[in-house]
Amino acid sequence: MQVQVNGEMLQVQDGITLTGLVEQLELGEKRIAIELNLEIIPRSQHEETILKESDRVEIVHAIGGG
Rank of each mutant, 00 (worst) to 15 (best):
V3A: 03
Q13R: 14
E58T: 01
V12P: 00
A33K: 13
R56V: 15
L25P: 03
I41M: 03
I32Q: 06
V5R: 00
M9I: 14
I32C: 03
L10D: 04
E39R: 14
R43P: 01
Q2C: 02
I59C: 01
L51D: 00
I34T: 01
N6G: 00
G64S: 05
D55A: 03
G15A: 06
E23K: 14
G66V: 02
I63D: 01
N6K: 02
V57E: 01
Q4I: 14
A33M: 15
I32M: 11
G20Q: 07
L36M: 11
P42I: 08
E26C: 09
G7I: 08
R56N: 10
A33H: 13
L25V: 07
I40R: 03
G7K: 04
E48Y: 12
E58F: 04
L51W: 02
T49D: 04
L51V: 01
P42E: 05
L21P: 00
E35R: 02
R43Q: 10
V12N: 04
S54C: 10
T49Q: 05
E29F: 08
E39M: 12
G15W: 02
Q2S: 09
G20H: 06
E47C: 11
V12Q: 00
L51I: 03
M1T: 05
Q4H: 10
M1Y: 11
L10M: 13
G64M: 11
E23F: 09
L36D: 02
I50H: 01
Q24K: 11
E35V: 07
I50Q: 10
I63Y: 03
D14G: 12
M9T: 13
N37S: 06
L27I: 08
I59N: 02
V5T: 02
V57A: 00
G64E: 09
D14S: 14
I41F: 04
I50C: 05
K30N: 08
R56D: 10
E8W: 09
G65R: 04
V5W: 02
Q11M: 12
A62H: 14
Q13F: 06
G15H: 06
G20F: 09
R43D: 09
L27A: 06
I50K: 12
V60S: 04
E29I: 10
E47R: 15
K52H: 13
L21Q: 01
E47M: 15
Q4N: 15
K52Y: 09
I59T: 04
T17G: 06
